[in-house]
Computed example of a mutant assay.
Amino acid sequence: MAADRIASLTLSHVVLPLENPVSDAKVLTGRQKPLTETVLLFVEVTTEQGFEGMGFSYSKRAGGPAQYAHLKEIAEVAIGQDPSDIAKIYESLMWAGASVGRSGVATQAVAALDVALHDLKARRAGLPLAKLLGAHRDSCRVYNTSGGFLQASVEEIKEKATASLEAGIGGIKIKVGQPDWAEDLRRVAALREHLGDTPFMVDANQQWDRARARRMCRELERFDLIWIEEPLDAWDAVGHADLSRTFDTPIATGEMLTSVPEHMALIDAGYRGIVQPDAPRIGGITPFLKFATLAAHAGLALAPHYAMEIHLHLAAAYPTEPWVEHFEWLNPLFEERIDIRDGRMWVPDRPGLGFTLSDQMRKLTVETAKFSA
């Protein structure tokens, strides 16, 4: 077969409002405003032979327009390249935007195109992406976060948790890290009593210093949690590593990190917890898989952050049993839904990621840019 070439790219800047604003500990500590929307960068790629792929990246509160602007500036270098040469294309995009570095917005913008190329490759093969990568399982354990934010009362969280479990979700995560640590413990105790032996996680969203984190981790040991997430600043690799070696309850972190080297700092510090890389944030599926190989070699458990439409496939290809985070927020953007039952999220049998863009996604598109040969 003759080599194929990328014939066209379409970039879409999409603003998806949330039904209700949500607050985590960063809001209660005054560091951020409530979250009201998710901003996404979609990329649709078409080849000369007629194959197609779709990928996306996202931001919360800030950075969405910057992602779109950056990829719009450099995307043209992918035109005419062989879509199978994903790593080569990635490098060419990195060099095209070299002056702004290789993390943060620079790689998050490229992530959308990188995901689209992996989607295209799997579609062309007629396989779900997980199968193309080499799946270890057809489903992954799933937990819900969207019902556990801090603006909700304990009773509201209980109701949402019950609804999630009845819908087939296997675990529940709630937010902690508010200024009144005693209130955190009261909420955790109330949810643990409500949930019984259901898998239960908490997320402090980086709001404790090292002393408070040690005290809170000690207090939280009695609740038999699956993990305590982001007890410290996301870039405090040494602090997270220390906590992971000190307490029986696993420590989880990594969702905010935006490059493989930033994630590797955890391993280099002796981290023994759960890693939570986010493909759109780390720069796409290409760097995600690079770090996943290193994490597996280090014996670390995996629980990717957000973007379940992408991460289900990547988690299914991880050697040890992972968790996938359920957020229904992006549902309006896609025609299909993921099968969730028996506490697990099931890999679609459709080729690629297994999703097509909805009419609602088109209506929510603020601007587009097109590139062609």
Rank of each mutant, 00 (worst) to 15 (best):
A303E: 01
A135P: 06
D268W: 10
H311M: 04
A279L: 01
K290S: 14
R344N: 07
G97C: 06
M264F: 03
L333H: 04
A269S: 15
L120G: 04
P319D: 00
G343I: 11
I338G: 07
D119C: 10
A301I: 03
Y58G: 04
M256H: 15
D180Q: 10
H136Y: 15
P21L: 12
L120H: 06
Y68T: 09
A96Q: 05
R137V: 05
E309I: 07
A116Q: 04
D184W: 10
L243V: 07
P17R: 03
M264T: 09
K72M: 12
P287F: 09
S99N: 09
E230M: 08
E328Y: 03
V110K: 06
T36S: 09
M216K: 07
A122M: 03
E335G: 14
L353D: 05
E219H: 14
E336M: 14
E156L: 02
V324P: 00
L357S: 03
I228H: 02
G273Q: 08
A78S: 15
E193Y: 08
G171W: 08
T365F: 13
G254L: 06
L185Q: 01
D242R: 13
E219N: 13
A75R: 01
R341E: 14
A298T: 08
L71K: 04
A237C: 06
D184H: 08
A315Q: 02
Y271V: 02
W227P: 04
V202I: 09
L165H: 08
D197N: 12
I251Q: 00
L117N: 06
L294S: 06
N20E: 15
D278F: 03
G343L: 11
L364F: 12
H13I: 13
R210T: 14
L300K: 02
T258G: 11
P277V: 06
A373Y: 12
E156K: 07
W208I: 06
L243I: 09
Q151W: 09
E230D: 14
V15P: 02
C217D: 00
V324A: 05
G170T: 02
K173L: 03
M1N: 06
L133C: 12
Q49K: 13
W181E: 11
G239K: 01
L185W: 03
L11V: 12
T286N: 02
E193L: 07
T198S: 02
V45I: 15
V188G: 00
Y318W: 03
L257G: 04
E328S: 14
E183L: 15
G171C: 11
A78L: 13
P348K: 01
D248I: 09
V154W: 03
R31M: 13
L300M: 03
G284K: 02
R341P: 07
E73M: 13
Y58Q: 04
G299E: 06
T38M: 11
